[in-house]
Design a protein around this nucleic acid. Structure first.
Lengths: 147, 147
DNA sequence: ATACGACCTCTAGCCACTTCAGGTTCAAGA
DNA sequence: TCTTGAACCTGAAGTGGCTAGAGGTCGTAT
């Protein structure tokens, strides 16, 4: 019974395997204060438990969703003090969603212009002069919004 | 007359105004070899001409399109030696287009998941407990009925 | 006892800038 | 002509979010 309840203590490599976060990245998260400092073995090696696995999974999920580290810090703080959390967490998520949508819109218009430019020149040496380079040199041909 | 021709020589701030590239960024481009070193005034200030305006416009356009600096360096080299240029320029553009499309696809799926997460909680303090934080903490899909 | 991989710290590197500190030059107004 | 003060200069350091390397220590299987 002690065996099961006792903390499943593991070194950093196992935490890495469990969460899919690289060892170096885990140490980096500790350094920047996203992960609490774990206990150490006699030989000074990090020993992690269930709490760390959960927190790191949270961080990874949020990073996969593109949240910046600073936003994650806030979300973690909120998750530590439930109750007040919802409004702020919602605001962070909505702001991030907004950003993602802007990025998508921007990339779509880039895609269009790149298609146009690349289509002008199909790659044959004789075919162009070169249209791509001219397109890049000359703004007037381009319909892209960000000038 | 001479006055007009002479006016084509300008300091860095004017080049910045004309191209929309920040002064510091212009100096950075010079430092990393994208822009040639300009003449200097007696007091050691940079003096730019038409050539620089054109080259910087090329660089800016390519950067706006998301080309990495290294790709731009190649494109600039190609534009200096026309003739051989087309195949390589085309390859660079197509590769970049490919990358842009991948980014779009990835962001779209992020958008969907963020929408799902943010929709679970509309922001009222009483409404959730908090679904966003749970969704982020969750390894599988969080059902927020249970606390 | 030894081998060997996993672990440790510290430092530097990546991209594409941006910011800062502390000084110099230029051009317009008095 | 002199005096402002905005624009310019250099060099170094900071940004985000890691990643990589050097050079050493620890833990465990045989």
């Amino acid at each position: 019974m002690d065996a099961k309840i006792a903390k499943r203590v593991m070194p950093i490599g196992s935490l890495s395997d469990r969460t899919g976060v690289k060892v170096e990245t885990i140490r980096y998260y500790e350094q920047v204060g996203l992960l609490p400092q774990p206990e150490r073995s006699e030989g000074n090696q990090r020993r992690y438990g269930r709490v760390h696995v959960e927190r790191l999974a949270f961080i990874k999920h949020a990073r996969d969703l593109g949240f910046p580290v600073d936003g994650i810090r806030t979300l973690l703080r909120l998750s530590d003090n439930p109750g007040m959390a919802c409004d702020e967490a919602h605001a962070i998520s909505v702001a991030h969603l907004d950003e993602v949508r802007h990025k998508i819109a921007r990339l779509r218009s880039l895609e269009k212009e790149l298609e146009r430019i690349a289509a002008t020149c199909s790659g044959g040496v004789a075919a162009c002069d070169c249209a791509i380079i001219e397109a890049l040199a000359d703004h007037s041909q381009c319909r892209h919004e960000r000038h």
